Simulated assay, not measured.
Amino acid sequence: MINFSAELYLLISRFAQSTPEWVHSFADFGTDAGLLLFFALFGWHAWRTRGTPEHRLALVAPLAVIGAYLVSEVTKSLIREDRPCRAVAGAAPIAECPAVGDWSFPSNHATIAASCAIVLTVLWPRLAPAVIPLAMLMAFSRVFVGVHYPHDVAAGFVVGSTVGLLLALLAVRLVGPPAPVAPAPRELVASRR
C-alpha cells in the first residue's frame, strides 16, 4: 500500500507543480484558514446558543476535537513515518517540508479538519453540506502541497471522524441533549385533532 500511496503522492504533487503560483499559496494557506473558519463556527455556535440548554454542549464539544488530535499525535509518535517530501525520490513539494521528527502518519491537519466537521455537524446539522466537503478539501491539500502521503490524510480523516463523533456523542450524553425543538404550528394543530 505504501508504494501505491507514494506513486499517487508523486502524481498529485507533480500536478500541483504545474499549477499557478497563486494556487500553491492558496493551498498552503487554505488548510490553516479552514481550521480558523471551523474554530470561528464553534465560537459562533456557542454565542448563538447562549441562554439555551444547548449552550453547555456548544462549550464542551470542541474538546472532542482536542481528543481526536491527541489520538493522532500519539499514533504519530508510535509509528514515526517520515514525510514523503524527504522519503520519496523525486518529491518536489510546493510547501516547506516539515522538520525531521515531525512525523507523517496520520495527518494532524486532516484529523483536526475531519473532527471539526463531524462535531459541528453533531451540534449544527445544517452545516454538514458545507463543513464536510471543506474538511475533505483541507485534507487533500496536505497531499497537494507535498507534505503528506494520501494514506496519511485518509487515516487522519478516519481518526478525526471516528474519535470526534464518539467524543461528541459522549459529550451529548454527559452534558445532556439539547432541549427538544418545539413543533411547528401546523404540527400543533394536527396533534390537537
Rank of each mutant, 00 (worst) to 15 (best):
C85Q: 05
S191C: 02
P53F: 10
V147I: 12
W103P: 01
P125K: 15
L120P: 02
V181D: 12
I66D: 00
L8Q: 13
V119L: 04
R56I: 02
L174C: 11
A128W: 11
L70Q: 11
P62Y: 10
C85E: 05
I112P: 01
G90H: 07
Y149K: 02
L36V: 15
F105T: 00
P185F: 07
L134D: 00
M138Q: 08
G146K: 05
H151C: 10
P180R: 11
L59E: 06
E96M: 10
I94R: 06
D28I: 15
L37N: 02
R142E: 05
P20R: 10
L170E: 10
S72A: 14
S161N: 03
H55M: 08
V131L: 01
E73C: 00
V175K: 08
A171C: 14
V60L: 14
A27F: 10
T19F: 00
L35N: 10
R14F: 07
K76G: 02
D152T: 02
T75G: 07
L174E: 10
I112A: 08
P62Q: 08
R14I: 01
A87F: 05
V159F: 06
C97D: 08
H24A: 09
D32T: 14
A95I: 07
P106I: 07
D28K: 15
M136E: 03
R193I: 12
A135L: 04
F140K: 00
S72V: 00
V65I: 12
E54Q: 13
L59W: 11
A117T: 03
W22G: 05
D82K: 12
G156L: 06
V60Q: 04
C97P: 11
V159I: 13
F105Q: 00
R142M: 08
G30D: 11
P177W: 14
P84D: 01
L10P: 05
R186T: 12
A61P: 06
F29A: 14
P178E: 12
I94W: 10
A184Q: 14
G34K: 06
C116F: 09
A190S: 12
T49F: 08
T31S: 13
A113R: 00
L37T: 11
I94V: 15
L120N: 04
A91H: 02
R142D: 05
V143N: 02
Y149E: 01
T75M: 12
L8A: 14
A113I: 04
G164Q: 02
L120W: 04
R14A: 11
L165N: 01
A130V: 13
H151E: 12
P183W: 09
Y9A: 03
L120A: 03
A117V: 05
R14P: 00
G164I: 01
T162F: 14
I66Q: 02
A61W: 01
V65T: 03
L41E: 07
A113K: 01
H24Y: 02
F26P: 01
G160H: 00
S191A: 15
T52R: 14
A110R: 04
L188E: 12
